[in-house]
Computed example of a mutant assay.
Amino acid sequence: MSGPDISVVICVYTEDRWEDILAAVSSVRAQAYPALETLLVVDHNAALLDRLSKEYKEATDVRVLANAGPRGLSAGRNTGIAASYGEVIAFLDDDAVAERDWLRHFAAGYADPRVMAVGGRTEPIWASGRRPDWFPEEFDWVVGCTYRGLPQGRVEVRNVLGGNASFRRTAFDFAGGFATGIGRDGDRLPLGGEETELCIRLTRARPDAVLLIDDRAVIHHRVPEPREHFRYFRTRTYAEGLSKALVARSVGADKGLESERRYTTRVLPAGVARGLRDAALARRGGAGRAGAIVAGVLTAAGGYVVGSVRVRRGGVTYSVVGIEGEPRFKGGSR
């Protein structure tokens, strides 16, 4: 099958997701377009590292390695990039499963040599079996999924979403790795935005670079029960505001908030109107969805203000490095 060799990186951190991790690996192994390899990067958890190493001891297509950088998702991804062999590196969440043609659609996007990244569509699997009535589709990013307002089809975008994304290896040679100090870090606030910051850095380094989302590249992401509640919704939206302040500091507010302005001024008002209309028609959850959108905007704005103040005072730091301080990723050699 012609096309680029693709390495798949899955960052893992807790044994609580053991069955999810095995399912994620199995979904990669079942791809119609075979992966060159799957790398499981364990984030500072010796017990999980040992358990996974034993599980895949005999596997020739799965490698288990420890995060070689500071605790957190960004450093784990950077570790996977540096250790991988593929021309393209794809990232899959540890609590998600990919559909059979996931990598095939990614590979097709790279037929154009200008394409530096291809992302896909992430569908939620709700622990309760159905979407909570009050939870607006416009905020599905809160639970790591594709949200209402993203363009459909295979289209050019400012940034891909990190849990279902791929990058050409040379993208990291041009832009460096994922910034540590922006994204998630174990038990800390559920921050995000590291893939946005990287994509903006990439297009600045290579103005001719094309970044795509192909909504046929589908994964299904498990949403645990605690994340179906408003408390998590509020925490995550606040954390997103903090993250956007760091992204704006890194790449400037014009680029860092470009897509968010359209989302806030067009997509969300339409969502509020839809919710109020549903409420007027006595449809379940309409008022709750409208209220959640307003609450989400306010808490994210509050997080952005707090994050901006912290940044100005020097209370928040981040860095753009790979493993052992190296900002470039050449990959291994066989």
Results as ranks from 00 to 15, higher is better:
Ser2Arg: 14
Gly3Arg: 10
Gly3Met: 08
Ile6Gln: 06
Ile6Arg: 11
Ser7Arg: 11
Val9Ile: 07
Ile10Pro: 05
Glu15Phe: 12
Asp16Ser: 07
Trp18Ser: 09
Ala23Glu: 04
Ala24Phe: 07
Ala24Val: 11
Val25Trp: 06
Val28Trp: 05
Val28Ile: 06
Arg29Gly: 12
Ala30Val: 12
Gln31Cys: 10
Gln31Trp: 13
Tyr33Ser: 02
Leu36Met: 09
Thr38Lys: 08
Val41Ile: 02
Val41Cys: 00
His44Val: 09
Asn45Cys: 06
Ala46Lys: 08
Leu49Ile: 04
Glu58Leu: 12
Ala59Tyr: 10
Ala59Gln: 14
Thr60Ala: 15
Leu65His: 10
Gly69His: 05
Ser74Cys: 15
Gly76Met: 03
Thr79Ile: 09
Thr79Ala: 14
Tyr85Ile: 06
Gly86Ala: 14
Ala90Arg: 10
Asp94Gln: 07
Val97His: 08
Arg100Ile: 14
Asp101Pro: 01
Arg104Phe: 13
Gly109Ile: 11
Gly109Val: 12
Val115Met: 09
Met116Tyr: 15
Val118Gly: 05
Gly120His: 12
Thr122Arg: 15
Pro124Glu: 02
Pro124Lys: 02
Trp126Ser: 06
Trp126Cys: 00
Ala127Ser: 06
Ser128Trp: 01
Arg130Ser: 02
Arg131Leu: 10
Glu138Tyr: 09
Glu138Cys: 00
Glu138Met: 03
Trp141Ser: 10
Val142His: 02
Val143His: 08
Gly144Tyr: 14
Cys145His: 11
Arg148Asp: 15
Arg148His: 08
Gly149Thr: 15
Gly153Pro: 06
Arg154Val: 13
Arg158Val: 15
Gly163Tyr: 04
Ala165Ser: 13
Ala165Arg: 03
Phe167Ser: 02
Arg168Met: 06
Ala171Pro: 09
Phe172Ile: 07
Phe172His: 07
Phe172Met: 05
Asp173Gly: 15
Gly176Arg: 11
Gly177Arg: 08
Ile182Val: 01
Ile182Gln: 06
Asp185Arg: 13
Arg188Thr: 10
Gly193Phe: 00
Glu197Met: 03
Cys199Gln: 07
Pro207Ile: 13
Ala209Ile: 07
Leu212Tyr: 01
Arg216Ala: 04
Ala217Asp: 14
Phe230His: 13
Tyr232Lys: 06
Phe233Cys: 01
Thr237Phe: 06
Ala239His: 02
Ala239Trp: 04
Leu242Met: 03
Leu242Trp: 04
Ala245Leu: 08
Gly252Ser: 08
Ala253Gln: 03
Asp254Lys: 04
Asp254Val: 10
Leu257Trp: 07
Glu258Phe: 03
Glu260Leu: 09
Tyr263Gly: 08
Thr265Gly: 03
Leu268Cys: 12
Ala270Asn: 14
Ala270Thr: 05
Val272Asp: 14
Ala280Tyr: 14
Leu281Trp: 12
Gly285Val: 00
Ala287Arg: 09
Gly291Ser: 01
Ile293Met: 07
Val294Lys: 14
Ala295Ile: 07
Thr299Glu: 08
Thr299Lys: 03
Ala300Gln: 13
Gly302Pro: 05
Arg312Asn: 06
Tyr318Cys: 11
Gly322Gln: 05
Pro327Glu: 02
Arg328Thr: 11
Phe329Tyr: 11
Gly331Asp: 15
